[in-house]
Structure formats: C-alpha cells, structure tokens
Design a protein around this nucleic acid. Sequence first.
DNA 1: ACAAAAGTGTTGCTACTACACCCATGA
DNA 2: TCATGGGTGTAGTAGCAACACTTTTGT
Lengths: 213, 213
Amino acid sequence: MKEIIDRFYIATDAVVFTVDKDTLKVLLIKRKGSPFKGMFAIPGGFLQNKDTTLDKCAYRELHEETGVRDIFLKKLTAFGDKGRDPRGRVITISYLALISSEDIELKPATDASDAGWFAINSLPNLAFDHKKILNHAFHNLKKEIETTNIAFQLLPERFTLTEMQKVYEAVYQQKLDKRNFRKKIKLLELLKDMHQTKMEGAHRPAKLYSFKI
Amino acid sequence: MKEIIDRFYIATDAVVFTVDKDTLKVLLIKRKGSPFKGMFAIPGGFLQNKDTTLDKCAYRELHEETGVRDIFLKKLTAFGDKGRDPRGRVITISYLALISSEDIELKPATDASDAGWFAINSLPNLAFDHKKILNHAFHNLKKEIETTNIAFQLLPERFTLTEMQKVYEAVYQQKLDKRNFRKKIKLLELLKDMHQTKMEGAHRPAKLYSFKI
DNA sequence: ACAAAAGTGTTGCTACTACACCCATGA
DNA sequence: TCATGGGTGTAGTAGCAACACTTTTGT
C-alpha cells in the first residue's frame, strides 16, 4: 500500500518575534544557498526522522541557524501549495516564537550566513512564501496577546509596568493609555510585586514585577 | 542535496461539524482497513502529488470518503509526532469543516465502509490521535464562532433567528437568553430580512433571514 | 530648579445581564 | 380555547475610554 503513496519534504519555519527598543522585531536569516540565495528568510529547515516531534524540529533548526535557545514556540499551521519551493514539493509547518530581548544572543551558524532582527514595519523582501507565513504569524500574535498571557514571553523575568505596556503597544502598533492599562493589568492579578525598583535615568524609579507562577 | 533529506507521508484530516436537531455533531467514518480496523476516525487521507494545495487534498478526501461536497474548510494545524501512525511517520494537517444539516447527504464510498454523524458529547473511541485532533478543532470552532461570522456555515441559506440561536447554543453547549441574543444579532447588522416566514407546527410563523452579502 | 518618567482616580458611556408577557398560528 | 414557539423592552450592572496632576529621582 505505502509504495503507491507520495512522500514529501517537510519543513518547519519559525517566525521569531521580540520587542526591542519599543519596536516589534522579527528574526530573519540571509540565505547562503540557492534558491533565493542572498535573500532574507524565516529561519527553518527540513524535518529529519530523528526529530520525534515537529516542535523538536523547529527548535533544532532555530538553534542551528541562529543560536537561539530556551524560546517559547507555538505551532501554527501548514503551507503546502505546489510550487512554493522551486526545489520540489515542500510542506512547511509554521511556528510562532517569542523571546525577550534580554535573552537575545545570536550566533550565526551552519545554515545561515547572516541573521538579524528587522522591525515589523520595515521588512526586506522575503524568500519563498515567507511573507505570507510571517503575516499569518503576526496576526496570530496580535490575536493571542489580547486573550492570553503570551506577552510574558516577550518580557524579561522582572519588568516594570511601562516595559510591559511597551510590549503591548509594539504588538498592537498603537499607543495605550497608561492609567487604563495599569488598571486592567492589576485587575487580572497576574503580577507579583518584587519589592524592587529599577532606576534608569534622571527620574523616579519604577517598581519591578514578575509573572505570578 | 535532496537525497539526504527524509521524506514523509502527508495526510489531511477534516473534522466536519454540523448542527442537527439542536445538537452539534461530528462526521466520522468506520475504518475498513488496518490499522484500527473497525474503529471510527476523522475522514481524511494521504496527500497526492496531483493535489496542488492542501485544501484540495482535504476536499478530495472528504468527498471520496463521505460524498460531502461544497463544504466550508478552514486549515488548522499539523500533527506529526513520531508513532502517531503505526504504519510509519505520517504528518497530518487538520481541517475544521462546517456544513448545514440541510446540505448533508452521505454517500459512503471507496475508503470508508461506513460514515455517520455523532453528537459531540457521545463520541466513540477514535483511531490514531484523532481524539486530540477533534478536540483541537472543537476548541477552535468555539473560539471562532465568538469572534467571526463562521456560524453562517452551519445554517441554511434562509433561517429563522431561533435556528440561528440553536446553532450558537449547540456550539457553546449552553442555553442563551432569547432577547439578549436577538438584540446582539440585530446590532451586528449582518442579517437581511427575507420578508418571508417559515410555518412549522401549531404556532406563530417565524421570519426568515439570510446572511447579508 | 528643572527635566523626565513613575504613579494614581473619577466621570461618562457603552455593552451585557436578568427577566415576563403578548402574538399568531394549527389542532 | 388551548398548546406551541415567535416576538418584544427595560432597568441595573460591569467594563471601557477619556482625561491631568503629583511624585521621585538625577543633573
């Protein structure tokens, strides 16, 4: 039976977001091989039989290509149109990945000749159908941040309320009202007061919080 | 290069919902081959090279196995853990499918010895990891019906407000207040009054509506 | 003393909930 | 005339948006 069933290449592609300097940024790599040599692309690569889950493949590829570890990954969907990869039929599974800008430490490695962070609203042209994959992940992020606690994945262990607000503003791409934001966050009772302050610049120090549990 | 890359079987599986007699139901097929012979499963099957998109594969498989045509399909996510299919590594792409109970007309065909509708809260044991796939689709449906117009896919061309309410109640699995439901629907301004009534039983006839545009 | 970000409350408005009776029809 | 589901409004509540000044620090 199996002999007559077509088999395909499977890949995972991770759209990695961070909020750095109040800006939502995406991690891209410059392709060093063909096709689309020299163009930017979402980090990812082919599923290997040794990857026991799709998640492990995404994690492995991300680490190999960018050096990133300990990152939040959420499986999104599949892209499998014929012709999306000129080398042959490749079905890719997209991932949403979030990392705190404090945890960023890129070590460009084997597969990518270059990796870098790009602001969401000044992206270069992307290889394959990666623009579509990236947009899908971005929409998913905006939706998730409204209804879940996913924002904490973009924050360091301890953070100020202003830093937290900046994360939401960067994702929503709009300013929020400080008092309303704080009121809502406090109502959710998700934060633990660390009884510490963060002094930064010539102004009143800000209280530090962490995510409860 | 390609020679060293593993290839895999790809499948699509569609979780087909309908609301019939005020109950949310799922379409399942009885497996006529091994593995899991005789058990129920979500309709689906292997991607073929002739399927130019994943959507077309899902649609083709659904038609071959159940006779269903003209159905709303929404791609969800991928399931690819090693060992989820005893025959070998199969990565499946799940779909959420919705159909009006008026459009149901099952013609069990080639792949399935039997197909039938099962109420969401009295499902049989399912083959493979189909329970997981089904639950994921169900959660997605509940989420989508809150925020989008997806409910219209579960309704016939023309419907009464009570029929519409029953669809929401079946998906949410809880009763809703008639007046509040109608108030909210009217505020959304999605409905077109067909200036027709539906007489059914010994009571006042109900106005018929259709989805605007 | 000044500049800069931290922190804090109130008011009006909108959206949601809870709730009960009359209407139009067929039998 | 009775049984059945169709159809309608109001009042109270909770959540959201708009908005400005005082506090604490470094220079």
